[in-house]
Structures are given as C-alpha cells and as structure tokens.
Design a protein around this nucleic acid. Structure first.
Lengths: 225, 225
DNA sequence: AAAAATTGTGTCTGGATGACACAACTCCAA
DNA sequence: TTGGAGTTGTGTCATCCAGACACAATTTTT
C-alpha cells in the first residue's frame, strides 16, 4: 500500500482565486493536468513531505499549509492502491519563483476555467474550496493570499472571490477594522488611478493570538454578538 | 509503510463526556490502554475500515463518524513506520452492545480520569476534543450523543460537559428552540423526581438541511446575526 | 474647473444575546 | 393536606452587532 501526498495550492491574482497544477511529464496520465504531489519518504513526517513538495514546485518555504483530509478509495489510483494525504496551501502568488514553476510545467488556473484533473483530484479541489470558504468565514485566513501590505478594497475583492458574491464596502470595512488585526502603514496605494487607498499590514501578534478564537455559539460575556 | 485506522469514540453518560478505549491483549504494549484501531484492509475504503472497527467494538452501525486527521510521525510506532488515519465517532452510550465491548476489554473513561494511552493516542484524543468543541459550537452535532428522545436540560448538561462551563438555562433554551430543530413529543421525562421536563426529538429533515449551514462571517440578508 | 471613479466614515433600525425575575410543576416530609 | 425544596418553562430589558443606506473626500481625466 502506497502513501502519497497531494497539495492543493491556492493563490489570488487580485481578481480570482487560482489553483496551481502541473502538467505531468511522467506516466500514468502523462500530459494531463494534476495536483502537485509525490510519495511520502521513509525519512520524513507528513508535514515535512508537504513542505518538500511545495518547496520543489514554488521555491517557497514558510507557506501556510494545513492537512485537510486523507483519501483512499480502493480504485482511486488505477495502478496501485494508494492512500493520499491531502494538504491545503495558501501562497502569495507573486512570491513564487518563476523558474521552479516552469520546470514543472505548472500553471495557475482560475477555478472557473481550469481543465479536468486526473484521478480524484477534482473532488479534492472542490473539497478544498469548501474548506477555504468554511475556514475563511471564521478565521482571518485570507491574508496568507495577499502581499504583506494591502488595501481594504483588495482584501474585499479577495473575500468576494472566495465566496463568489458581492459585499457591501462600508460594512466590510467596518467589520475588518473592528477585528483590530490591521495596522495602517500610513502609505497609500500609488498604483490607483483614482483615490489612493490606505495600505495596511497585519498585526502579527494579534493575528497569532486571535487566529483560533473566533467563537460564535458559546456565550460571550458582556452581551451582544 | 503500514496504514492504520484509529477511532476516537466519545459518549455521554448524562454528566460527563466519556471515551471508549480498549485494554490491549496483544503486543506491543500488551496490557496498556489504547484507542480502538486496526490496519486498513486492501479490500476496503477508509470509511469502511472505520465502520468495521467501530462495529467490531460496539456492535453498532450507523454511527456518526468523521475523519479528523492523519498522523505519521516517523517514530510514532516503535515497531514499524505507520501512518494512521484517525476517525472521530459519537455514539449514544446506552446503545452499545455489552458483549462486544467486554470481549475487547473496553472501558468508558471520563476524560478527567482516563489513564495514559499508548503511542501518540493521548495527543489524538486532545485534538479530537478540540475538534468536538469547535464543531459543536457551529453545528448541531451534540444530538448524536443523546438518546432519540431527550429533554432540554439534558442537552444543556451535554454542552456544559463539552465545554466544561456552566450555561444559563433560559438563554440556552431559547437559543436551542430558535433553531427549529427540536420537536416536542408531548411526553414528559418521568424519571425525574421533581418537575418533569418535556421530551423532544430531532426534526430529522431540518437537521440534515441545516447541519452544514451555520454561517457567521458572511452577510445574512435581513439584518442581524 | 468639473466630472467620473473610488475610498473613508457615519447613521439608522431590526434582531440576537447575555443578564436576570417570576410562575408552574413534582415529590416528599411534616 | 400543606408547605417547602428542587427543577422546569417563559418573559423582560438593555446592549451590541449586522445589514441597509448616504454623504463627503481624494485623484485623475477632460
């Protein structure tokens, strides 16, 4: 029984959520599109394996990675029984190294236009998108997809892309600022052709502390919410 | 490389959350306490394997089961490199079959008093409890631990046990009834020695429809929440 | 200098939440 | 039989948050 690792890599180009997949130059299914993956080495833990695969494709370390599920249907791999541990990665699409990506014949596809992937990889992507939607609704996850400094309208476009819906500018801005996670850098986005939006950055300390504490069902002392 | 399945089985006795574990009568670590588990068969999917193991121990089918993580640290199993897919199960503690449980030297331990488990099983249990707390805060999950007919005070005790905190009776009752998931059977709990509480049952249809739809960050048309 | 596009901030109302009070039910003991 | 203890069912109130919506300020273009 083989143990594999597959990585679902999401990025954001300012308009759409994108998925990084490779064109296989090896059998089986050579020439078709697939998630980046590989077999688990005897000498590495699962998370290390995922990091290795991600580094191999993007040249990046310190990526946001999370294990989301393990699939193992009997016939999911036509060659041999393979259990695959699936990881979910969010990267700043502009940080990746071009050469590494090109060496693997990789391509960023928007979710709407992407081709079909091999095996059960399409199901994995669908599950990963659900997971992104679920988690981003409860935790300040989206920042992993943005550059270090970003504007609130950019952040809003990201959320609109994740959920495929329009949001009200004013309510979104209020809600985001209320979290206290954003720090105004004082600079403005000078790429704009109209009013220049303020550039913010994450308050890293509050970010780490608050990340796991979005609670909604149990009582919050002090009324409201 | 071996692929195993381990099951974390939670129950509720009316007062405390309990965990079902077995006393191993096989090597290694014979005589010590461990989660119920086994190796994945070539002829079964992961979920089938979990169901098989759960049936073997409890005699139950139709258990609430969810895959929560996969562990694979190099040295987690001292004998051989083993990847373990961990499942999370919630059962009505009174439905289990006594004989099956006894045949495995199994025991229901309260989380506070349980002995240390072998390998990395204690970490798994800790993660599973976090997961229970997380998920129960957002989805109507707790009912899986209760009998088919239950009172609101019973349900409240369950939530108090999950979170190790006291809740206000009146607010809890209102919140639960507002979900529209409960149907008053008209009967009363006649085991009580004081005022008999009403017995409710789940509205199965609404339960299934609403289960995945507790959303809190994205806008809800119509103001509020 | 005015218009178009975009950004920043404010107000209002409905609804949900936590804090808290009171009435009703059941059994048991005096 | 009666009253008290323990428990359950329902209601009120103030606060806070969310969504709906308006207006002023900034920047480039015409």
């Amino acid at each position: 029984m083989l143990v594999a690792i597959d990585c679902i890599i999401f990025g954001f180009d300012g308009e759409e959520i994108k998925l990084l997949v490779i064109k296989r130059n090896f059998k089986p299914e050579k020439g078709k599109w697939s998630l980046m993956g590989g077999f688990l080495n005897q000498t590495e833990d699962l998370e290390n394996g995922a990091s290795r695969i991600l580094y191999d494709l993007t040249g990046l370390t310190d990526i946001y990675v999370e294990q989301i599920m393990t699939v193992g249907k009997i016939d999911r791999d036509p060659v041999e029984r393979t259990i695959s541990v699936v990881f979910f990665a969010l990267i700043n699409i502009h940080n990746q190294e071009q050469e590494a990506v090109k060496a693997h014949n990789a391509h960023w596809w928007s979710l709407a236009k992407k081709p079909n992937l091999i095996f059960d990889h399409d199901e994995m992507v669908a599950r990963a998108l659900e997971y992104l939607q679920y988690k981003a609704a409860l935790h300040p996850l989206g920042f992993e997809l943005l550059p270090e400094r970003f504007t609130i309208p950019q952040l809003q476009k990201l959320y609109e892309a994740i959920y495929s819906m329009k949001l009200d500018r004013r309510n979104f801005s209020r809600k985001i600022l209320q979290t206290g996670l954003l720090i105004d850098t004082g600079d403005k986005n000078d790429q704009s052709t109209t009013k220049k939006a303020s550039l913010f950055r994450l308050d890293q300390e509050r970010y780490k502390n608050k990340f796991d504490s979005f609670w909604h069902f149990m009582p919050h002392p002090g009324g409201g919410k």
